[in-house]
Amino acid sequence: MRHKYLVSGLIVAAAFAAGIVFSITRQNVIHRADIPGLLWPNPRLIAPFKLHTSDGSEFTEANFANHWTLIFFGFTNCPDICPSTMATLKQLYEQWGSDANVKHNLKIVFVSVDPERDDDATLMNYVSYFHPSFVGVTGNEDDLSRFAGQLGALFMKVNSAGIPGYAMDHSASIILVAPSAHFVGIFSPPHEVDDIKARLMRMIEFLSETTL
């Protein structure tokens, strides 16, 4: 009888201890996931799509493998926010590459939402001006819409007084895609290099220890 009580007591104690450990772990995970811009706990797997890079290669969901990807949508006739954001991404990319604490590969992708004016040569010249490793991507309007829609990055051709031809309204955010092709993070403007880098490191550290 006494043995029975002892076993029961041990079971209750073990369950209690497990509960505490679970609670602490859960709180820790929730706390660690509390990073502004991190899409957790429901990151979206990007469905198959087909665009192309400025060198004519296919750009699909397979191109996200083996590295983390930051995506910015824009167009080369955008005078202000696009070059401003691309300059920020260049600084970030160079800091990322020179930081000994950073162990994860990063790629920067500029998606032109103006395929009518941004041919491959124009796009290549544009992205390589910021960094030779940056990738320029575009596609036809339908394919671009489907891809951008998956990332919540709407764009629209607009006619505006004082703007010759047309302009493009487009998402001002920078999108983070994991090597598993999950849409995992979003950085809203204003874009500051130090802020993006700090959050990016925390996001990647957290997600690298998590099964997507």
Partner: peptide, 12 residues
């Protein structure tokens, strides 16, 4: 003026 990329037709 921000130097525009060579392929850009606009500057700010």
């Amino acid at each position: 003026i921000r130097e525009p990329p060579p392929s850009s037709n606009v500057a700010a």
